[in-house]
Computed example of a mutant assay.
Amino acid sequence: MNNFSDMLSKAKAMQEKMKQAQDQIKRIEVHGMSGGNLVKVTLTGDYEIKSIEITDAAKKESQEIINDLIIAAYNNAKENLKKKSAEELSKVTGGLNLPLDFKLPF
Results as ranks from 00 to 15, higher is better:
residue 72 A to L: 06
residue 76 N to T: 07
residue 31 H to E: 14
residue 32 G to I: 01
residue 40 K to Y: 01
residue 96 L to G: 04
residue 92 V to I: 14
residue 26 K to C: 01
residue 68 D to C: 10
residue 28 I to K: 05
residue 25 I to N: 00
residue 69 L to K: 08
residue 44 T to K: 13
residue 47 Y to G: 00
residue 97 N to H: 10
residue 75 N to L: 01
residue 59 K to C: 06
residue 70 I to S: 03
residue 16 E to S: 15
residue 99 P to G: 15
residue 29 E to Y: 10
residue 32 G to R: 01
residue 82 K to C: 10
residue 58 A to M: 06
residue 72 A to G: 07
residue 24 Q to H: 12
residue 17 K to F: 10
residue 83 K to D: 15
residue 58 A to N: 09
residue 99 P to D: 12
residue 51 S to G: 03
residue 61 E to Q: 07
residue 58 A to Y: 03
residue 23 D to M: 08
residue 40 K to S: 11
residue 55 T to P: 07
residue 75 N to F: 06
residue 74 Y to L: 01
residue 76 N to M: 07
residue 102 F to K: 13
residue 16 E to N: 12
residue 43 L to S: 05
residue 100 L to P: 03
residue 30 V to T: 03
residue 73 A to T: 00
residue 59 K to G: 11
residue 37 N to W: 04
residue 89 L to I: 15
residue 55 T to E: 06
residue 87 E to Y: 11
residue 19 K to R: 12
residue 80 N to L: 04
residue 89 L to F: 11
residue 74 Y to A: 02
residue 42 T to L: 13
residue 79 E to R: 12
residue 98 L to F: 13
residue 33 M to P: 03
residue 42 T to E: 15
residue 27 R to S: 03
residue 99 P to L: 12
residue 17 K to E: 07
residue 61 E to Y: 01
residue 41 V to R: 04
residue 91 K to R: 09
residue 71 I to C: 14
residue 46 D to K: 13
residue 91 K to F: 13
residue 21 A to F: 14
residue 75 N to G: 00
residue 65 I to H: 09
residue 100 L to T: 12
residue 73 A to G: 08
residue 95 G to D: 10
residue 101 D to W: 11
residue 94 G to A: 09
residue 84 K to I: 05
residue 90 S to M: 04
residue 102 F to P: 08
residue 29 E to S: 10
residue 66 I to Y: 02
residue 36 G to M: 06
residue 84 K to V: 09
residue 26 K to E: 06
residue 64 E to L: 01
residue 38 L to K: 07
residue 47 Y to F: 11
residue 78 K to Q: 08
residue 69 L to F: 12
residue 102 F to R: 10
residue 53 E to A: 12
residue 23 D to C: 02
residue 84 K to M: 08
residue 88 E to H: 05
residue 60 K to S: 14
residue 82 K to T: 14
residue 34 S to C: 07
residue 99 P to S: 14
residue 32 G to Y: 02
residue 62 S to A: 05
residue 39 V to Y: 06
residue 26 K to T: 02
residue 71 I to V: 15
residue 24 Q to R: 14
residue 27 R to W: 00
residue 32 G to W: 00
residue 56 D to E: 12
residue 52 I to S: 04
residue 64 E to K: 01
residue 21 A to L: 06
residue 100 L to R: 14
residue 102 F to I: 15
residue 41 V to S: 14
residue 43 L to Q: 03
residue 83 K to E: 15
residue 60 K to D: 15
residue 50 K to G: 04
residue 82 K to P: 08
residue 51 S to Q: 00
residue 59 K to W: 00
residue 74 Y to P: 01
residue 41 V to F: 07
residue 37 N to K: 10
residue 69 L to C: 11
residue 53 E to T: 05
residue 26 K to R: 13
residue 45 G to F: 11
residue 72 A to K: 03
residue 57 A to F: 04
residue 100 L to E: 10
residue 23 D to H: 07
residue 45 G to E: 13
residue 50 K to T: 01
residue 90 S to I: 09
residue 86 A to L: 13
residue 43 L to F: 05
residue 94 G to S: 09
residue 96 L to I: 15
residue 49 I to M: 10
residue 91 K to T: 09
residue 35 G to A: 06
residue 37 N to A: 14
residue 65 I to Q: 08
residue 73 A to L: 02
residue 95 G to W: 07
residue 88 E to I: 14
residue 69 L to N: 11
residue 50 K to W: 02
residue 60 K to F: 00
residue 73 A to F: 03
residue 47 Y to M: 02
residue 100 L to Y: 15
residue 48 E to V: 05
residue 76 N to I: 05
residue 90 S to N: 02
residue 62 S to I: 04
residue 46 D to T: 11
residue 52 I to Q: 01
